[in-house]
Design a protein around this nucleic acid. Structure first.
Lengths: 183, 183, 183, 183
DNA sequence: AATGAATGAGGGTTCATTCAT
DNA sequence: TATGAATGAACCCTCATTCAT
């Protein structure tokens, strides 16, 4: 009657991706076992088998998000052609997150909302932030890294909240002002 | 048998403030009629009387928040003693929101999380942002205002997520770098 | 579509009686909101309205049981025709509970099972036991009351567990032996 | 990667004892495969291997209980020094179960609760009761045995439900009254 | 012989919302 | 105007049981 699929090794992963989809659409509080199960195409009982509590599911999903986002962030900075002004890397990061990957921005804001209220998520974000700074320090002074990170954060956030069209020129101007003299 | 207090003119307001308290503690999704009613000390039936749907309640609460936060923002900038470097106003705003008023930061992140997913809240935030810029433009160039606003946002956000102690010097340095030459 | 029955004053009571029915059939652990709701003919939502937690429901049901059983117990002893040997009252109590009212015995054993594990139920049973003794003391010496109560308990219990037919003569003999000389 | 202990001959027994522990703590309805498996330190899959259905597990556990309890009962009566008033054996049984071995009382009440609702358990208890009477008949008249058994049951039960301290004197008095003239 | 993976059927509880009063 | 009573739809989570290995 029912299709039996006894072993499904990457089911855990599929569930996590489905969970992030649900966060993007309905927010972190919209992550219900049911919603994710349906999206991932797995039976409800399978959800609690892999993630015994909803909280674990949400946490695992946001951990995956942090990893994914950092990879993208790091890759942009790492793959700058030699000789490029590294500030262009920052501009590109903002542009990438501000224009494309909109859903990931949605996701990260949800993560921040959790982080300001819950230590566990605060630590997760903190670790992610440190990794971002480490990546920035490949090109910029260590003192500057947190500032660049903050500016980039604010720009991306505002670009997503704003109803105005994304303005790369303004982003570039802000970045170049903050980092007058790339180290 | 208890004499009921006839006419409770600021009950609506008390409910909204209670709602914001609940957001600070449990997030926007934690705003249930029941939780808010208990916090505000009003009967459950009174909630739906004043706010026929939950959505209206939440929206009204965040509207109140935007007003409150803008007032604080504007007041700091408006009350700078003549002759002060206006960049100090920006530093002070970040410091105020980064150190004290932590719960308001929690609230605003929740608002952002709503905004990135829902136009109605996006418009609310957009209007607030425009007012902030208008306030900044009293001291800075109009082109610069959005950048300052973004930097300030990023700094406050990171200060709340970070587990490191708040560092005013770094904030000041970032602000002064971005605004090298106050208009 | 649905029959609306806005006020139903003795619904609470009907629920409790339904709960006891369910205990009799499926044991205390079988008392689920759903099972009781169906039995009482009330919507599921009504259950949690009247009894916010399952535990409250169960406790209230067993409180009602204790009251009901004590009433029956007391009434038998109180309505003995003057001049009757009061020991016949005890015999009659055992007979009543041993032959008729079988379901109530079932119920009381469930209550004992709760009582030996949970103080709250222990207190409930303790209070009931004290009332029983008080009733017995109308006819018997205070020292004797607990013994009579214990014997009666054991006889009723065994009569319900036994597969042999109920034997009044044996009950009478036991009671008369224990109470050789009615006070 | 951990070497698995091949052949664990008394695992079945360990599971049953664990099951009884769980009954003592959470009642018969608390006996879930998971709870017992954890308590016994065996994998979940092992449970259904040894006891294909939960019902079998519970029944086997209570069978073991009946055996254990009867052994204790019989031993007390069998090991009375010659010349001792056999009624002291009964007193001692009540004292043993009333003061020590509290958890076993908990267990037996659970068994009674099952017995009054389910023939299978009724038969189990019935067999146990017959064995008890057989033991009593070594010292007392066959007619008296059921009465003694009932009294003893009621005394033990009440002692466990009562919040008053255990009173051996009263127990002795009750036993001596019921058995005025030991056969 | 033994067990981890998997799942469907509930079960307790929360809650927005409706409505009679 | 104001509110207590009421309810149905979810939601999180537990669990017995099945089965491939």
């Amino acid at each position: 009657m029912v299709r039996v699929r006894r072993s499904d090794p990457d089911r855990r992963d599929r569930i996590l991706r489905a969970a992030l989809d649900v966060v993007a659409e309905h927010g972190a509080s919209g992550v219900t076992y049911r919603a994710v199960a349906e999206r991932a195409g797995v039976p409800l009982g399978s959800m609690t088998y892999h993630f015994p509590s909803r909280e674990e599911l949400v946490y695992a999903a946001f951990s995956l998000l942090a990893d994914t986002m950092h990879s993208r962030f790091d890759e942009i900075l790492a793959s700058l052609p030699p000789g490029t002004d590294p500030r262009e890397g920052v501009v590109q990061i903002v542009a990438t997150q501000g224009e494309g990957y909109a859903s990931e921005m949605v996701l990260s804001v949800e993560l921040y909302a959790l982080a300001v209220r819950d230590v566990r998520y605060r630590e997760l974000v903190q670790a992610w932030m440190l990794r971002s700074r480490r990546s920035l320090e490949r090109h910029f002074d260590a003192d500057l890294a947190p500032m660049i990170d903050a500016l980039q954060e604010g720009l991306v956030l505002h670009s997503h909240i704003s109803t105005e069209p994304f303005d790369v020129a303004r982003v570039r101007q802000a970045v170049y002002r903050l980092i007058a003299d790339p180290a």
